[in-house]
Design a protein around this nucleic acid. Structure first.
Lengths: 217, 217
DNA sequence: AAATATTTTTAGACAAGGGTAAAAATATTT
DNA sequence: AAATATTTTTACCCTTGTCTAAAAATATTT
């Protein structure tokens, strides 16, 4: 039995540690989860005790195979619920995170499998992130941040790195949506800004925004 | 802020105390919630502290207006989620209770309103129980247990009193479903059994079963 | 390499929710 | 009305997950 809190720690370690492979520092987890370092140490010990994590004092944590699968299962639930909220209940994508954060902890294999079928087995959630299947497998779309794309080339907006409310609202306001074709027209070294072109218009975006937009070529 | 545990107590008091009006005993709650009487006393004090319940030592608890509305809101969520599970995810009605028990505690007004719309504002859940609206109002279908119906008359199976897995499975096995028209043919005083007639057949049911079937005339 | 700074861990406390055992109040018998 | 039984409450303990403050380990400067 994995508790709600444990699930959140597993998810954090997974995301911070590159699928949970790299060792993650106590402070990094503390910041991610919004808790104090001492609380994190306590929880890490419990996870190691349950063989969900590998832990060496002062050396950080990584996930065991079981821990990784558990994390992926939580991520699967989170992303399926987000898809449900956006596709079926007509939420906009910036509203769904907090609700999915709760729904991801509902315990029922059968529920999530039926939800998956009901949504017609989506491979990506509304933010463009891949949804692991029952066995924890998924294929990431190969994509690059606009920062790393050569001027003149174009791609399809496939995901966003930052899923904060503020950023998603910015995208809505500027009529940028997943699936849009974006061409990188120019880079301005003075302020690190980019000029991009979409179907409807040409616009300038800051380095900060460019960093968070991932295009698949 | 009402906690998950508090919500469960409010629901129990609501159901045991005839919409929370009548005073309910500590022991009755303990049994319903599967906890010890001492734990119930503690929680009751917290509810009274938060003005969700009226409590006089040794005299039992009832709900305040706020408590009653909170209970109805939890019941609304429970029944909407059950409806979702059965109507959209194709669960059968005896499987949904435990999952709805978890889903009913998800916090988001907007979520439940959108779910309500998605389900096309159902007035009754899969067990025939009424779903309170946003304001906590609902209309109960006027119905009577087969025990209280005169031989010879008929009605539509509108709800079941006992929603246990065992009973719902019994109904499935015997092809009895909500909405079926049932005619009460005979009563046998020797063992208190009833003979009833449905579209497809005539059958005998025990007093125990009869007691749990509610027909609307 | 010593001194200082930062990170991590330990020790001890707290709130929520639940349990046991005994005391107090209420109900029921005789 | 006493005696007995039952219910409810109190007093105290436990676990989970969190916190603060201090100690220990590791990193970074000088």
């Amino acid at each position: 039995m994995v508790t709600l809190s444990e699930e959140n720690y597993l998810k954090a370690i997974y995301h911070l540690g590159n699928q949970g492979d790299d060792a993650v520092s106590t402070n990094a987890i503390a910041e991610q989860i919004d808790a104090k370092a001492s609380s994190v140490t306590d929880m890490i010990k419990k996870l190691a005790e349950k063989e969900l994590a590998n832990y060496i004092k002062y050396q950080g944590v990584s996930l065991t195979e079981t821990g990784r699968l558990t994390a992926r299962s939580v991520i699967r639930k989170h992303r399926l619920w987000e898809t449900f909220l956006v596709n079926k209940l007509n939420f906009s994508w910036h509203e769904v995170h907090d609700i999915a954060e709760q729904l991801e902890h509902i315990k029922s294999e059968k529920l999530i499998d039926k939800l998956d079928d009901f949504l017609e087995n989506p491979t990506h959630d509304p933010h463009g992130d891949p949804i692991p299947d029952k066995n924890g497998n998924y294929t990431k779309i190969k994509s690059k941040s606009i920062l790393d794309i050569e001027t003149g080339s174009q791609g399809v907006l496939s995901s966003v790195k930052d899923s904060s409310k503020a950023f998603l609202k910015y995208l809505n306001k500027n009529e940028l949506a997943l699936g849009d074709t974006i061409k990188v027209i120019d880079f301005e070294p003075f302020d690190d800004s980019f000029t991009i072109e979409t179907k409807s218009r040409t616009m300038t975006i800051s380095r900060e925004v460019a960093e968070n937009l991932y295009l698949s070529i």
